[in-house]
Simulated assay, not measured.
Amino acid sequence: MTVKKALIPAAGLGTRFLPATKSMPKEMLPIIDTPVIQYVVEEAIASGIEDIIIITGRGKRAIEDYFDDSPELEMHLAKKHNTELLKLVRDVSSLVDIHYIRQKEPNGLGDAVLRAENHIGNEPFAVLLGDDIIVNDKPCTAQLIDNFQKYGRSTLAVEEVPYEKLSSYGIIKGKPLNDSLYVLEDIVEKPSPENAPSNIGAIGRYVFTPEIFDCIKEAGTGVGDEIQLTDGIRLLNNTQTIYACRFEGKRFDTGDRLGYVKSIIDFALKNESLREDVLEYLRDILVTVDDPSDK
């Protein structure tokens, strides 16, 4: 089986970025000049995905508009003979075949995944959270797909989580197969740090067999009175082996304010036209902070 469909949940309220997200989807927050969700879509495409479903909600229309044609803007750029920007705008709207399904109200990640069941059908599929950017030569999703191709089983991307952040993740208990792969033994949604089974957490990338849908339904409501994807994974693990993969790459959690700031700095330092000016500015800030006479 090949993985050609991907689901991007993007229906959250983005409360950590209020008031900006009162009228703007958090997935559309820019990393310099490119919204977060474009990086996620590009990762899916680079991983061989041909069909993308984005789960949206009320107030998320900007996501649909962004990936759609923009005749007025394109006409304006054409009249100004700004061929470089015109190509940039047109490239965005021709990235891949994208479908949109609305989640009527935020009811957990598991519920968001269920919205796409009819579209996915009886096929394996990837899930990429809309506010995680992962940078590497080989996309994180492609790494998971490789593991799925090898074993034919659902695979989660995982990484070490700081102690103080354990209660924000699904934390796994796993049996190591090698330096980067575990057989999943259990996963616990948002445990207290003292009760966490490890310091290894599932992050925003998954590849699932279609049986996950029935397991999510069977699991019902979980932590926070929401339908949790983690609970569905636990049930699926009772009938199928699930793997947890330590992916290669650098992850930015742009749904977190500090993670968002880090992503902007990191991407700016990799931008040839910005790098030197940003470095100079950062040096000036550090000198000012370290100068006792400035206190």
Rank of each mutant, 00 (worst) to 15 (best):
M1V: 13
V3S: 00
K5E: 10
L7P: 07
A10P: 05
L13K: 12
L13P: 06
G14E: 01
G14K: 07
T15H: 09
F17Y: 01
F17M: 05
M24Y: 15
M24T: 13
M24A: 11
M28E: 05
I32K: 00
Q38A: 00
Y39E: 02
V41L: 03
E43C: 03
I45M: 06
G48V: 01
E50F: 08
I54N: 00
I54E: 00
R58W: 15
I63V: 07
D65T: 08
D68P: 12
E72A: 10
H76K: 12
A78P: 15
K80P: 14
E84I: 14
L86A: 13
K87M: 14
D91N: 15
D91L: 10
V92S: 02
S93P: 04
S94I: 11
S94C: 13
I101E: 01
R102N: 13
E105K: 08
E105S: 10
E105W: 10
N107F: 13
L109P: 09
L114P: 13
E117V: 00
P124L: 14
F125V: 03
A126H: 04
D131C: 00
D131V: 01
I134W: 13
V135N: 10
D137A: 09
C140T: 10
A142K: 01
L144C: 07
L144F: 01
N147K: 14
F148T: 00
Y151H: 11
R153M: 10
R153N: 08
T155P: 00
L156D: 07
E159K: 02
V161I: 07
P162E: 04
Y163L: 12
Y163N: 11
Y163P: 12
K165L: 09
Y169A: 04
I171S: 06
I172S: 02
G174M: 01
G174A: 01
P176Y: 02
Y182C: 04
Y182G: 01
E185T: 11
V188N: 09
V188G: 09
V188F: 08
E189P: 15
K190N: 13
P193N: 07
E194L: 14
A196M: 04
P197H: 06
N199T: 07
I200N: 08
A202S: 04
Y206A: 08
V207H: 12
F208W: 04
D214R: 13
D214A: 02
I216E: 03
T221Y: 09
V223S: 14
Q228W: 11
T230I: 03
D231I: 02
D231L: 01
R234C: 05
N237G: 09
N237R: 02
Q240P: 11
T241W: 08
A244H: 01
A244D: 03
C245K: 15
C245G: 14
E248L: 07
F252T: 03
Y260E: 05
V261T: 15
K262M: 11
K262E: 13
K262L: 10
I264F: 06
I265F: 12
K270I: 06
K270F: 03
E272P: 14
E272H: 12
L279S: 12
Y281G: 14
R283D: 15
V287Q: 13
V289R: 06
D290E: 12
